[in-house]
Design a protein around this nucleic acid. Structure first.
Length: 105
DNA sequence: CGGGTGACAGACC
DNA sequence: TGGTCTGCCACCC
């Protein structure tokens, strides 16, 4: 399975529908896109987003609630900032999933 | 063609 | 709570 427009489109839609103050894991997005076990592919799609994207990419975290970017990288700080700005508590580059994970209806 | 590399995840210990 | 190891799969040399 390549990174076809269909999959990208699905990922964009899903990520775009994560509500403010909530987060989802890469694997969760992949599954919702109809492709379980393809978390890495989701990361690839997000990596391809333009810098001025309007998509809430910062609401996507690793399965353990940690930010995927290495601490110290600008992107890491950016993600922290954006999450906090919408009321998500980030401690040590990590979010409490029990409290913030998105559970789609 | 072959090996290294990720914005990952789950199983174990 | 935290390390390792393995499976994963499209890309890029």
């Amino acid at each position: 399975m390549s990174i076809n427009p269909e999959f990208s489109q699905a990922v964009w839609n899903i990520v775009g529908s994560i509500p403010r103050g909530h987060v989802a894991s890469y694997g969760q997005v992949a599954a919702l896109a109809g492709h379980p076990r393809r978390a890495r592919l989701v990361g690839r799609v997000l990596a391809g987003l333009p810098e001025d994207t309007r998509l809430p990419w910062h609401r996507v975290l690793r399965a353990d609630g940690r930010i995927a970017f290495p601490p110290g990288e600008p992107a890491h700080r950016e993600q922290c900032a954006r999450l906090r700005e919408e009321g998500v508590t980030v401690t040590g580059g990590q979010v409490d999933l029990r409290r913030h994970q998105w559970r789609p209806a």
